[in-house]
Nucleic acid binder design. Structure first.
Length: 222
DNA sequence: CACCAGGCCCTAT
DNA sequence: ATAGGGCATGGT
């Protein structure tokens, strides 16, 4: 049995899934929106909700200011397919309120120091660590690694590791992998895509190419 | 029919 | 710190 090294994970996943390209679709404005819509929700449902929004607001720029002018109730109806529509409508409004303080100028927001911008996002009710980091990595292109439930699951199943806190997992990845926006974007996407195929709640290790190196066979090493 | 999906917040322990 | 419940639609 071969021990899988965390540092080899990216390469292994790349060989299995190829290049993802732009994994998180949409403009930066859309990414800010979908980051909230996708919370614990299938991407298909997020797409339906986004289509509703575009249908009403048009699919060109300035989505955010237009959204800001909708009421929470109007918003809730439009994003219904994404589930949790009441809480998500509030969360979106909260984020939009923050963005409005910067006149929805994403360029200017992007110039804010990463740690500071992260704090701003975390102060928004409804944005937790994962959503904040997803926004930082995919919308603002900051080299911050995103940790989600799949990342923990893979750490657990493939490496037999107790995941620990969000920060611990994030630091682990960011220690092993050098800070790189394309790398972090791609690696997180690969983890999600791999997990969706093989690391569902009912593991499909029988058809997973790296299952033979999982904790049932391999061991974790740095 | 049951179960889950690219979380977060609040409460209780 | 960690566990559990609520939030809700649509796909399998």
């Amino acid at each position: 049995m071969i021990a899988v090294k965390l540092g080899e994970l990216y390469e292994r996943l790349r060989l299995i899934h190829g290049e993802l390209g732009k994994w998180w679709p949409g403009t930066r404005e859309e990414i800010l929106i979908t980051a909230i819509l996708t919370q614990s929700t299938n991407w298909k449902n997020v797409e339906k909700a986004m289509e509703n929004l575009k249908k009403v607001l048009g699919d060109e720029e300035n989505l955010l200011p237009k959204l800001h002018n909708l009421s929470r109730e109007e918003l809730a109806v439009l994003i219904k397919p994404s589930g949790f529509f009441n809480v998500k409508a509030s969360r979106l409004k909260n984020l939009l309120a923050l963005l409005s303080l910067y006149d929805f100028n994403l360029e200017r927001l992007g110039e804010i120091e990463t740690g500071e911008l992260r704090r701003l996002l975390l102060n928004v009710e409804g944005i937790g660590e994962e959503t904040a980091d997803a926004i930082l990595l995919y919308a603002f292109e900051k080299p911050v690694f995103v940790v989600d439930s799949y990342t923990r699951r893979i750490l657990e199943r493939v490496f037999g590791e107790k995941p620990g806190t969000y920060e611990q997992v994030q630091r682990l990845f960011m220690t092993v992998y050098p800070p790189s926006v394309p790398l972090y974007q791609e690696l997180h996407g690969l983890i999600v895509e791999h997990a969706k195929k093989f690391c569902t709640t009912k593991p499909k290790c029988d058809v997973c190419p790296i299952a033979k190196d999982c904790k049932t066979g391999g061991s974790f090493t740095r």
